[in-house]
Protein backbone atom coordinates (compact mmCIF):
# COMPACT_ATOMS: atom_id res chain seq x y z
CA UNK A 1 0.00 0.00 0.00
CA UNK A 2 1.47 3.32 -1.08
CA UNK A 3 0.96 6.43 1.03
CA UNK A 4 0.27 9.61 -0.88
CA UNK A 5 0.74 13.03 0.65
CA UNK A 6 -1.64 15.75 -0.47
CA UNK A 7 -2.11 19.30 0.64
CA UNK A 8 -5.72 20.10 1.46
CA UNK A 9 -6.32 23.76 2.27
CA UNK A 10 -2.63 24.11 3.12
CA UNK A 11 -2.55 21.13 5.49
CA UNK A 12 -0.61 18.02 4.49
CA UNK A 13 -2.71 14.89 4.75
CA UNK A 14 -1.85 11.33 3.91
CA UNK A 15 -4.00 8.67 2.36
CA UNK A 16 -3.35 5.16 1.22
CA UNK A 17 -3.47 4.39 -2.46
CA UNK A 18 -3.29 0.92 -3.93
CA UNK A 19 -0.88 0.58 -6.83
CA UNK A 20 -2.46 0.26 -10.23
CA UNK A 21 -2.53 -3.39 -11.29
CA UNK A 22 -1.82 -3.57 -15.02
CA UNK A 23 -1.26 -6.19 -17.67
CA UNK A 24 -0.76 -6.40 -21.40
CA UNK A 25 -2.66 -8.18 -24.16
CA UNK A 26 -1.41 -8.74 -27.71
CA UNK A 27 -4.63 -9.35 -29.66
CA UNK A 28 -8.38 -8.90 -29.55
CA UNK A 29 -8.69 -12.68 -29.52
CA UNK A 30 -6.75 -12.86 -26.26
CA UNK A 31 -9.05 -10.38 -24.51
CA UNK A 32 -11.98 -11.43 -22.40
CA UNK A 33 -13.88 -9.61 -19.70
CA UNK A 34 -13.16 -12.47 -17.33
CA UNK A 35 -9.38 -12.38 -17.82
CA UNK A 36 -9.14 -8.61 -17.34
CA UNK A 37 -11.59 -7.98 -14.52
CA UNK A 38 -8.86 -7.94 -11.85
CA UNK A 39 -6.85 -5.19 -13.54
CA UNK A 40 -7.09 -1.41 -13.37
CA UNK A 41 -5.43 -0.80 -16.70
CA UNK A 42 -4.35 -2.70 -19.79
CA UNK A 43 -1.55 -2.16 -22.33
CA UNK A 44 -2.73 -3.10 -25.81
CA UNK A 45 -0.47 -4.61 -28.45
CA UNK A 46 2.53 -6.92 -28.86
CA UNK A 47 5.64 -4.73 -29.11
CA UNK A 48 8.07 -7.33 -30.48
CA UNK A 49 6.66 -8.09 -33.95
CA UNK A 50 4.41 -6.22 -36.37
CA UNK A 51 3.48 -9.46 -38.10
CA UNK A 52 2.21 -11.28 -35.01
CA UNK A 53 -1.21 -12.51 -36.04
CA UNK A 54 -3.93 -10.14 -34.81
CA UNK A 55 -1.43 -7.77 -33.18
CA UNK A 56 -3.36 -4.74 -31.95
CA UNK A 57 -0.56 -2.36 -32.93
CA UNK A 58 -0.92 -3.48 -36.55
CA UNK A 59 -4.72 -3.90 -36.74
CA UNK A 60 -6.30 -0.57 -36.03
CA UNK A 61 -9.91 -1.78 -36.36
CA UNK A 62 -9.20 -4.40 -33.72
CA UNK A 63 -7.49 -1.75 -31.62
CA UNK A 64 -10.62 0.39 -31.76
CA UNK A 65 -12.76 -2.57 -30.69
CA UNK A 66 -10.35 -3.39 -27.85
CA UNK A 67 -10.42 0.20 -26.57
CA UNK A 68 -14.22 0.18 -26.68
CA UNK A 69 -14.33 -3.08 -24.72
CA UNK A 70 -12.00 -1.77 -22.03
CA UNK A 71 -13.90 1.49 -21.78
CA UNK A 72 -17.10 -0.49 -21.18
CA UNK A 73 -15.25 -2.31 -18.39
CA UNK A 74 -14.15 1.07 -16.98
CA UNK A 75 -10.46 0.19 -17.37
CA UNK A 76 -7.68 2.59 -18.24
CA UNK A 77 -6.38 1.95 -21.74
CA UNK A 78 -2.74 2.22 -22.73
CA UNK A 79 -1.31 1.48 -26.16
CA UNK A 80 2.14 -0.09 -26.59
CA UNK A 81 4.33 0.74 -29.56
CA UNK A 82 6.93 -1.32 -31.39
CA UNK A 83 9.96 -1.88 -29.14
CA UNK A 84 12.88 -1.23 -31.49
CA UNK A 85 11.59 0.65 -34.54
CA UNK A 86 13.94 1.10 -37.48
CA UNK A 87 13.55 3.94 -39.97
CA UNK A 88 11.26 1.81 -42.12
CA UNK A 89 8.98 1.19 -39.12
CA UNK A 90 8.44 4.84 -38.24
CA UNK A 91 5.50 5.40 -40.61
CA UNK A 92 3.68 2.53 -38.89
CA UNK A 93 4.55 3.96 -35.48
CA UNK A 94 3.25 7.41 -36.48
CA UNK A 95 0.05 5.86 -37.81
CA UNK A 96 -0.42 3.94 -34.55
CA UNK A 97 0.14 7.06 -32.45
CA UNK A 98 -2.39 8.97 -34.56
CA UNK A 99 -4.89 6.17 -34.02
CA UNK A 100 -4.22 6.11 -30.28
CA UNK A 101 -4.76 9.88 -30.12
CA UNK A 102 -8.00 9.56 -32.11
CA UNK A 103 -9.19 6.86 -29.70
CA UNK A 104 -8.28 9.11 -26.75
CA UNK A 105 -6.45 6.36 -24.90
CA UNK A 106 -5.10 7.13 -21.46
CA UNK A 107 -1.43 6.75 -22.39
CA UNK A 108 0.96 5.64 -25.09
CA UNK A 109 3.90 3.47 -24.08
CA UNK A 110 7.22 3.47 -25.91
CA UNK A 111 10.66 2.03 -25.23
CA UNK A 112 12.38 4.10 -27.91
CA UNK A 113 13.88 7.49 -27.02
CA UNK A 114 13.27 8.95 -30.47
CA UNK A 115 9.62 7.96 -30.46
CA UNK A 116 9.19 9.14 -26.88
CA UNK A 117 10.60 12.55 -27.84
CA UNK A 118 8.44 12.65 -30.97
CA UNK A 119 5.29 12.12 -28.91
CA UNK A 120 6.17 14.65 -26.22
CA UNK A 121 6.93 17.27 -28.90
CA UNK A 122 4.12 16.61 -31.37
CA UNK A 123 1.40 15.54 -28.94
CA UNK A 124 2.11 17.43 -25.70
CA UNK A 125 -1.30 16.48 -24.29
CA UNK A 126 -0.71 12.76 -24.67
CA UNK A 127 0.39 10.95 -21.55
CA UNK A 128 3.60 9.00 -22.20
CA UNK A 129 4.80 5.90 -20.39
CA UNK A 130 8.19 4.32 -21.03
CA UNK A 131 8.62 0.55 -20.99
CA UNK A 132 11.31 -1.59 -19.39
CA UNK A 133 13.44 -1.85 -22.54
CA UNK A 134 13.98 1.92 -22.60
CA UNK A 135 17.12 1.22 -20.57
CA UNK A 136 16.55 3.74 -17.77
CA UNK A 137 19.46 2.93 -15.49
CA UNK A 138 19.98 6.25 -13.72
CA UNK A 139 18.03 8.96 -11.96
CA UNK A 140 19.64 11.35 -14.44
CA UNK A 141 17.87 9.65 -17.34
CA UNK A 142 14.61 9.64 -15.39
CA UNK A 143 15.09 13.39 -14.81
CA UNK A 144 15.70 13.92 -18.51
CA UNK A 145 12.50 12.08 -19.41
CA UNK A 146 10.57 13.96 -16.73
CA UNK A 147 11.82 17.24 -18.19
CA UNK A 148 10.52 16.12 -21.59
CA UNK A 149 7.04 15.50 -20.21
CA UNK A 150 7.08 11.74 -19.64
CA UNK A 151 4.74 10.87 -16.79
CA UNK A 152 5.55 7.25 -16.00
CA UNK A 153 8.69 5.15 -16.41
CA UNK A 154 9.50 1.50 -16.02
CA UNK A 155 13.13 1.45 -14.83
CA UNK A 156 15.55 -0.97 -16.53
CA UNK A 157 14.71 -4.54 -15.51
CA UNK A 158 18.26 -4.98 -14.21
CA UNK A 159 17.90 -2.41 -11.42
CA UNK A 160 17.60 -3.47 -7.78
CA UNK A 161 14.90 -2.03 -5.55
CA UNK A 162 17.14 0.65 -4.04
CA UNK A 163 17.91 2.09 -7.48
CA UNK A 164 14.25 1.97 -8.49
CA UNK A 165 13.44 3.96 -5.37
CA UNK A 166 15.95 6.64 -6.41
CA UNK A 167 14.19 6.90 -9.77
CA UNK A 168 10.86 7.28 -7.97
CA UNK A 169 12.39 10.16 -6.01
CA UNK A 170 12.75 12.10 -9.28
CA UNK A 171 9.03 12.74 -9.12
CA UNK A 172 7.50 10.74 -11.92
CA UNK A 173 5.35 7.64 -11.65
CA UNK A 174 7.13 4.30 -11.55
CA UNK A 175 5.81 1.01 -12.85
CA UNK A 176 7.50 -2.36 -12.29
CA UNK A 177 6.88 -5.96 -13.31
CA UNK A 178 5.78 -7.98 -10.30
CA UNK A 179 5.05 -11.20 -12.16
CA UNK A 180 5.72 -12.81 -15.51
CA UNK A 181 8.47 -13.31 -18.05
CA UNK A 182 10.64 -10.24 -18.63
CA UNK A 183 12.48 -9.50 -21.88
CA UNK A 184 16.24 -10.14 -21.60
CA UNK A 185 17.25 -9.03 -25.04
CA UNK A 186 16.02 -7.67 -28.31
CA UNK A 187 17.44 -8.73 -31.61
CA UNK A 188 17.67 -7.45 -35.14
CA UNK A 189 15.90 -10.51 -36.52
CA UNK A 190 13.23 -12.86 -35.27
CA UNK A 191 14.76 -16.18 -34.24
CA UNK A 192 11.47 -18.01 -34.72
CA UNK A 193 11.24 -16.94 -38.37
CA UNK A 194 14.65 -18.46 -39.00
CA UNK A 195 13.42 -21.79 -37.59
CA UNK A 196 10.79 -22.28 -40.32
CA UNK A 197 12.73 -24.90 -42.28
CA UNK A 198 13.50 -26.90 -39.13
CA UNK A 199 10.01 -26.81 -37.64
CA UNK A 200 7.77 -26.89 -40.70
CA UNK A 201 5.98 -23.80 -39.39
CA UNK A 202 6.27 -20.36 -40.89
CA UNK A 203 5.51 -16.79 -39.83
CA UNK A 204 3.02 -15.83 -38.47
CA UNK A 205 1.79 -19.30 -37.41
CA UNK A 206 5.04 -20.28 -35.76
CA UNK A 207 4.33 -17.74 -33.00
CA UNK A 208 1.30 -19.73 -31.93
CA UNK A 209 3.69 -22.45 -30.77
CA UNK A 210 5.57 -22.15 -27.51
CA UNK A 211 9.34 -22.27 -28.05
CA UNK A 212 12.13 -22.57 -25.49
CA UNK A 213 15.90 -22.36 -25.61
CA UNK A 214 17.37 -24.78 -23.06
CA UNK A 215 21.00 -25.24 -22.08
CA UNK A 216 21.43 -27.50 -19.04
CA UNK A 217 19.34 -25.71 -16.41
CA UNK A 218 19.22 -22.37 -18.26
CA UNK A 219 15.98 -21.54 -20.05
CA UNK A 220 14.90 -18.71 -22.34
CA UNK A 221 11.72 -18.09 -24.29
CA UNK A 222 12.07 -16.54 -27.78
CA UNK A 223 9.09 -14.41 -28.72
CA UNK A 224 9.21 -12.21 -31.80
CA UNK A 225 12.33 -10.08 -31.77
CA UNK A 226 12.53 -10.39 -27.98
CA UNK A 227 13.90 -13.21 -25.88
CA UNK A 228 12.17 -13.54 -22.54
CA UNK A 229 13.20 -15.06 -19.24
CA UNK A 230 12.36 -18.76 -19.06
CA UNK A 231 11.28 -18.40 -15.46
CA UNK A 232 8.45 -16.23 -14.23
CA UNK A 233 9.54 -13.24 -12.18
CA UNK A 234 7.50 -13.49 -9.00
CA UNK A 235 7.38 -10.81 -6.31
CA UNK A 236 4.30 -12.24 -4.61
CA UNK A 237 6.14 -12.90 -1.33
CA UNK A 238 7.94 -9.56 -1.39
CA UNK A 239 5.32 -7.15 -2.68
CA UNK A 240 5.61 -4.88 0.37
CA UNK A 241 9.18 -4.07 -0.66
CA UNK A 242 7.70 -2.41 -3.74
CA UNK A 243 5.05 -0.44 -1.87
CA UNK A 244 6.40 2.86 -3.22
CA UNK A 245 5.63 2.15 -6.88
CA UNK A 246 2.61 3.52 -8.71
CA UNK A 247 1.83 0.54 -10.90
CA UNK A 248 2.52 -3.19 -10.79
CA UNK A 249 2.53 -5.07 -14.06
CA UNK A 250 1.63 -8.68 -14.68
CA UNK A 251 3.69 -9.38 -17.80
CA UNK A 252 1.54 -11.77 -19.81
CA UNK A 253 2.20 -10.85 -23.44
CA UNK A 254 3.47 -14.31 -24.39
CA UNK A 255 1.16 -16.34 -22.18
CA UNK A 256 -1.71 -18.63 -23.04
CA UNK A 257 -5.29 -17.79 -22.18
CA UNK A 258 -5.96 -18.31 -18.49
CA UNK A 259 -2.59 -17.14 -17.13
CA UNK A 260 -3.55 -13.46 -17.12
CA UNK A 261 -6.84 -14.21 -15.37
CA UNK A 262 -5.44 -16.44 -12.60
CA UNK A 263 -2.32 -14.37 -11.90
CA UNK A 264 -4.32 -11.14 -11.89
CA UNK A 265 -6.84 -12.57 -9.44
CA UNK A 266 -4.06 -13.76 -7.12
CA UNK A 267 -2.22 -10.42 -7.13
CA UNK A 268 -5.47 -8.49 -6.65
CA UNK A 269 -6.14 -10.65 -3.59
CA UNK A 270 -2.54 -10.13 -2.44
CA UNK A 271 -2.93 -6.33 -2.62
CA UNK A 272 -6.35 -6.30 -0.95
CA UNK A 273 -6.15 -9.15 1.54
CA UNK A 274 -2.50 -10.13 2.00
CA UNK A 275 -0.41 -13.25 1.61
CA UNK A 276 -1.90 -16.69 0.96
CA UNK A 277 0.20 -19.87 0.92
CA UNK A 278 -2.34 -21.44 -1.39
CA UNK A 279 -2.13 -18.58 -3.89
CA UNK A 280 1.67 -18.61 -3.82
CA UNK A 281 1.62 -22.35 -4.48
CA UNK A 282 -0.68 -21.79 -7.45
CA UNK A 283 1.75 -19.25 -8.94
CA UNK A 284 4.59 -21.74 -8.60
CA UNK A 285 2.50 -24.44 -10.25
CA UNK A 286 1.77 -22.17 -13.20
CA UNK A 287 5.43 -21.37 -13.82
CA UNK A 288 6.56 -24.12 -16.20
CA UNK A 289 10.26 -23.39 -15.59
CA UNK A 290 10.03 -22.12 -12.04
CA UNK A 291 9.99 -18.67 -10.48
CA UNK A 292 12.67 -16.09 -9.88
CA UNK A 293 12.92 -12.58 -8.38
CA UNK A 294 14.34 -10.93 -11.45
CA UNK A 295 16.93 -8.32 -10.56
CA UNK A 296 15.26 -6.76 -7.52
CA UNK A 297 17.66 -8.16 -4.91
CA UNK A 298 21.09 -7.68 -6.53
CA UNK A 299 21.26 -11.38 -7.37
CA UNK A 300 21.30 -13.23 -10.66
CA UNK A 301 17.93 -12.53 -12.25
CA UNK A 302 17.01 -16.22 -12.42
CA UNK A 303 17.49 -16.83 -8.68
CA UNK A 304 14.64 -16.97 -6.24
CA UNK A 305 15.00 -15.73 -2.69
CA UNK A 306 12.12 -16.75 -0.47
CA UNK A 307 10.55 -14.66 2.22
CA UNK A 308 12.90 -16.07 4.85
CA UNK A 309 15.88 -14.96 2.76
CA UNK A 310 17.02 -18.40 1.60
CA UNK A 311 17.54 -19.38 -2.01
CA UNK A 312 14.87 -21.86 -3.04
CA UNK A 313 14.90 -24.56 -5.65
CA UNK A 314 12.05 -23.67 -7.95
CA UNK A 315 12.88 -25.40 -11.19
CA UNK A 316 10.09 -27.29 -12.88
CA UNK A 317 6.57 -27.70 -11.66
CA UNK A 318 6.41 -27.74 -7.91
Amino acid sequence: MKVDRLKVEGIEVTHEVDPELVTNVPTLESMSECSLKHYDAVYLGMPYCWEYEGNLISNHDDLGAAVEMLRAMKKKVYVSTFAAPRNKDLKHVFSLIDKAVELEVDAVESTNYGVIRHITKEYPDVRVHTGGLTNIYTSATAELLYSMGVERVMPAYELPIEDIRKIKDVGLEVEVVVHGKIPLGISHDCFLKSFADKTGKDCPYICKEEFWFRSDDLVLKPFGSATLSGKDVCMYEHIEKLDFVDAMRIEAISERIGYRDVVGEIYRRRINEGYSTEDFGRLKEMAKNGICNGFYFNKAGQDYIGKVGKAEETKGVL
Binding site: N135, E158, L184, G185, S187, L218, F295, A300, G301, D303
Partner: peptide, 11 residues
Protein backbone atom coordinates in the same frame (compact mmCIF):
# COMPACT_ATOMS: atom_id res chain seq x y z
CA UNK B 1 23.41 -2.71 -25.22
CA UNK B 2 20.19 -4.69 -25.30
CA UNK B 3 21.32 -7.96 -23.70
CA UNK B 4 20.68 -8.90 -20.08
CA UNK B 5 21.67 -12.57 -20.23
CA UNK B 6 24.81 -12.09 -18.11
CA UNK B 7 22.83 -10.44 -15.34
CA UNK B 8 20.01 -12.94 -15.54
CA UNK B 9 22.18 -16.04 -15.40
CA UNK B 10 25.29 -14.87 -13.55
CA UNK B 11 24.31 -11.79 -11.56
Amino acid sequence: GRCMLTGYFDG
